[in-house]
Nucleic acid binder design. Structure first.
Lengths: 301, 301
DNA sequence: AAAGCTCATCGAATATTCCGATTTTTAAAA
DNA sequence: TTTTAAAAATCGGAATATTCGATGAGCTTT
């Protein structure tokens, strides 16, 4: 019976991978550097191979080490899920849910949704975090988030997807420049489009929904939020596409822009909730999703 | 940081699940009963729930306990895969491969294939085990086998499938009773069919390949191997369907039966190799599969 | 009742883990 | 080159945790 890796060793390994530094990894693991060092060494001797190349001044993982870290991550997640499974079984709708939300949803939907959730699921403690889709996906897979509220389609491995509701895009023109209350999609001048910087999925979704390529969209500005784009539109620097929920939330209230819908197409993005397939709290997350959906459907609530 | 389940505890839990007996589980785990008992208790107090109902005279798992065992199994397999990953990385084609083979393949293919494998992959040590498909599937999922050589289609969860080669069915008639060298499939009298007992996938595959339902096939006998069916055919008690590899291996050599092929259809079963998707030794298993395929293609070798 | 299982409990022996100081190795700075 | 600084490996001993064997308690069977 050769003795298999310990969970502790695996934890040390992923901690080391995160920090690339024995000392910091040790701190993060609440042990001394010597302990962590010994743990990694024991793991290596156990496996009979080197996982980490220690070139002083930096730590490099071998190919095998990287793969090992990936698997170790999954294993540790699964183990953590075990305790979740137990507490979820005791009282499914109680406990902490760590939710990630993308920046083009968070400020517009959360103020409406969070109070509704604490009314519907009073024992659920929401921890929120706002990042771009790709980062949230990584956090989800690393087990640092339980669910992610985002706009699909967005590929996040084999996570479980729960579509919630569609969010309709509208166009914003400088005051008085709109061709009418509703426009034909061909009336969108792509060269005047102001969009969020690359990496925001809103950019891709808006372009796709409006059947545009975005090749010719203006890029000179790296806009980081819708709130910074609107004043530019108002100042006549261009036009933009807005998610309906942002308008409903009043993003245009003190800004002079014309909001128009489309006459020929109904461009939307689908808002959805995802979680790891192995997470045993799926029923809780479904309830959460339902709460979000119904809160979003009743703007006045 | 509440400290998560230990691998040891998980091992104790699955051992207990296997034996349904603290003492035996302890033996299997090479610890005393008190240690195992304490381990299970610690796990339960850690999770805050009961996993096992101890009614004297028997051990029952709660619903949560069962689910926990399932997950624990997977986790332990994944952890074991880690060490496999390491040794496979060092020398992929070396080491033990535990292969399960179904009874309608093993006696006909292995004598030809095993020597070829030890020539092609001399450092691979094959451990063989013969069981019915369903049992092999369980063993594979439980991590007690690395690969299974079987006839597909057979659903074994989300295992990875490698189809190897088709094996053609022929019909066996009592000497002199065959309508000719080759027959039309409609000439098969289903009521005279002698087949293996339920549970052998050969039964299902043969019927499916010959487009029969098997509803009217004779069932009074629970035949456990092809070698017991053939003498019955020879004695005029009926007809049967044989896999080609059995005939090639000489199963009919000292038995008076007529072997005929089909003129209208080419009934086959596909022989394949499967393994757990998470097993890191996939390249080794592919090599093994290729070796089997080429050995099967060269009967004289 | 008594005997026989089975699982839980407990104290003592044992094994392990962990720390903190120190050493070694390496890279950068003087 | 020498010095300095940083980072990981090493090592002995103390703290901690694990395991065992014996024993106890609860239930069944005889």
């Amino acid at each position: 019976m050769s003795f298999p890796p310990t969970l502790k060793q695996l934890r040390y390994l992923v901690a080391l991978h995160k920090t690339n530094h024995f000392g910091k990894a040790a701190d993060a693991s609440h042990v001394t550097q010597s302990t962590l060092s010994a743990g990694i060494q024991e793991l290596e001797s156990l496996l009979g191979t080197q996982l980490v190349e220690r070139t002083k001044r930096s730590v490099m993982f071998t190919a095998l080490g990287e793969e090992m870290v990936r698997r170790a991550q999954d294993i540790l997640n699964d183990v953590d899920d075990l305790t979740d499974l137990a507490s979820a079984a005791k009282d499914p709708m109680r406990g902490v849910v760590r939710m990630g939300v993308i920046p083009t949803i968070a400020p517009y939907l959360l103020p409406r949704v969070v109070p509704a959730i604490s009314k519907t699921l009073p024992d659920l403690e929401l921890h929120l975090r706002e990042e771009k889709s790709a980062d949230l996906c990584d956090l989800l897979r690393a087990g640092e988030l339980d669910v992610v509220l985002y706009a699909l389609p967005f590929d996040c491995g084999d996570a479980h997807e729960m579509p919630l509701f569609p969010d309709r895009f509208v166009a914003a023109f400088p005051k008085g420049e709109a061709p009418g209350d509703s426009i034909h999609s061909s009336e969108l001048d792509e060269e005047r489009l102001l969009l969020l910087e690359e990496g925001h999925c809103l950019r891709d979704h808006a372009l796709a929904a409006c059947q545009l390529l975005g090749r010719r969209a203006r890029r000179e500005l790296a806009n980081t939020s819708l709130a910074t784009i609107l004043p530019m539109v108002s100042a006549g620097h261009g036009i933009t596409l807005l998610p309906g929920m942002a308008v409903e939330a009043g993003i245009t209230e003190n800004i002079d822009v014309d909001i128009v819908t489309f006459s020929d197409i109904i461009p939307t993005r689908m808002i959805g909730l995802i979680w790891r397939k192995t997470n045993p709290r799926a029923p809780t997350f479904e309830a959460l999703g339902n709460a979000i959906r119904s809160a979003a459907a009743h703007p006045t609530a």
